[in-house]
Design a protein around this nucleic acid. Structure first.
Lengths: 339, 339
DNA sequence: CTGAAAGCGCTTACAG
DNA sequence: CTGAAAGCGCTTACAG
């Protein structure tokens, strides 16, 4: 018989029914070991029976921290964001924590201050930092300064492993290099992402280095810098396809740009994969919807989101193992040996 | 000189500095008219000076409502979700409200109860209901029962206009019908969405009805029901393209399925638009990345999200005008007159 | 137009 | 292992 007008039981109801103080109920809620097992069971039974859940605002007010996790991102790839959100929610479910989204524009000078206000005003429990904001040391420094927990997702280990999730983008690009080489391609084009993106440097570096190790040198003009957008993919592909000898394969460092390569190729009347092989990176929905379907590299984004949120909920003291993921090549229909 | 250890000023700091009671500061925060203009100005100046923002948890606890807006959705289209979120955040910015995301699975019998728990436990201020969950009357009935405000987005006016945003999907399909007819097509294929989706019924109905008004009858077998997925688009297109006479145009009720039509056409060696015209619906990123780029129908999703959030923040008493949007045809390269 | 009191539902010290 | 007191930072209901 709840006392609140909202029909929800409160800690006082449970305490009264259990014949204990509310402090004891509080101990049960917070999994304090200092509760007699019998008392604990009685309280837990009552909690279940009344479907009691502590009010996050009351708890947060006393705790001086909300039960909210912020997801901070500046990533134009909607599928990536939604997968990441779903993964984070997978691990938040049942924990009493909720996910608050905070898109931002890292090109805007005062976005760090915007995040600061957000964290402070909402008294966020912690934040998930998605690339590319996760690569911004100024942002991270600010978060440390205001003592906000964070989980940072990045292509290489940028931080202490208790707050870092490493995606090893380089390894995905290495796989692409080996695959392309094994098919027999020797005239190879590369469309990189913006150089300020760590992912672009890692992917591009891993690709070129692996080819070099296998004796394949990619001349400088066969590497062009794109902007991770469809349009830049079209433009970069047009430049590459005007080269002599024409590349027989183009690796675009994300799927968006790979789709741009398709467009440029079709405009020139080049058939994929017969006359031009193409590889992307991300395994976005686009990849399987293009025709022919795109060979690309996949990272388990949802799992990454899950681990990021789980990392935030972990006891600060617990010594967790480093969290790392490895991307994998997904072979579809867009590559074949050169004619 | 804030008293809190977090470095954030509290209502007590402002009250003390202004030489008024905290109740008066509270009145200023809550825009009560019962404050002397001079007092108000003094308090407001102090608020600005100290960059004071009321603690949403303390406020929510006293208010018995959080400053959180939930976005409830069951929509596989990531771009749609992200645009909607961005729109909602556009209108929440600076209001002190934040957006909490809640994906769910409306095929799961107890998803309504999941939403109920979410709303009750977080004491949500209100929720934005995105199609297809916005079409579920059982969900809405539950929300009314627990007295939770909602903004409902749907193809037709399903509810009181103070909580309804109407997207008029039918009108977009009417435009498609007129366009297709004007190009001279007479053998027309339609791939609908699942019949339980209001959007599918509205789009399909508007299309067929408009054609009928113009004297074009689409035989029953030229209409097939897809699942709003890429794969269903492929399968449905294969059925349609096996018909005699073969349709010279296919209207797929979303872009995903239209991409499937592309795949089926290419497999059969049919060139788009020379031998087959295609129209989609949504103007997803896919649409402009396909080759040839897809003629489709666009709805301003971000604006819709913005209006939905704004509707929730509106004073309950204020008599707002109905909010409606009209979709528009975006002509690209995927249609031409039949050969 | 303004304020003192009580309370929202929890937790943090502190004491035992 | 358990609890009474005080407090987190606000608002409601009441009084003036």
């Amino acid at each position: 018989m709840p006392s609140g007008s909202s029909g929800q039981a409160t800690i006082n109801d449970i305490a009264r029914l259990a014949g204990v103080s509310k402090k004891t109920v509080s101990r049960v809620i917070n999994r304090s070991p200092l509760v007699h097992p019998e008392t604990r069971e009685k309280v837990e039974a009552l909690i279940r029976e009344h479907n009691y859940a502590p009010d996050p605002m009351a708890r947060g007010l006393a705790f001086r921290k909300s039960f909210l996790i912020g997801m901070i991102y500046d990533n134009p790839n909607a599928q990536y964001i939604v997968h990441m959100q779903n993964g984070a929610l997978d691990s938040l479910r049942g924990s009493g924590f909720e996910l608050v989204v905070h898109p931002c524009d890292s090109k805007n000078a005062d976005y760090v201050d915007g995040v600061r206000q957000f964290v402070l005003q909402q008294r966020l429990y912690g934040v998930i930092l998605v690339p590319r904001v996760s690569e911004d040391q100024a942002l991270v420094d600010m978060l440390r300064e205001i003592d906000c927990r964070y989980a940072r997702i990045g292509a290489v280990e940028l931080d202490d492993h208790t707050s870092m999730i490493t995606t090893n983008d380089r390894e995905g690009a290495v796989e692409v290099a080996k695959y392309v080489e094994s098919l027999g391609h020797r005239h190879i084009g590369l469309i990189t992402g913006p150089h300020r993106y760590l992912s672009a440097r890692e992917r591009g570096g891993g690709f070129l280095q692996t080819l070099a190790q296998r004796g394949i040198k990619v001349p400088a003009k066969y590497t062009v810098e794109g902007g991770y957008t469809f349009e830049s993919g079209v433009a970069c592909a047009e430049r590459l396809l005007a080269l002599t000898p024409r590349p027989t394969v183009i690796f675009a460092l994300n799927d968006e740009m790979a789709a741009g390569v398709y467009k440029a190729a079709y405009r020139l009347g080049l058939r994929i994969p017969d006359q031009l092989s193409v590889v992307g990176f991300d395994d976005s929905p686009l990849a399987s919807r293009l025709w022919p379907s795109l060979t690309t590299v996949r990272l388990p984004i949802r799992d990454i989101g899950l681990r990021a949120a789980a990392m935030l909920l972990q006891e600060p003291g617990s010594n967790a193992a480093p969290v790392a993921f490895t991307p994998h090549l997904v072979v579809r229909e867009s590559c074949q040996p050169p004619e």
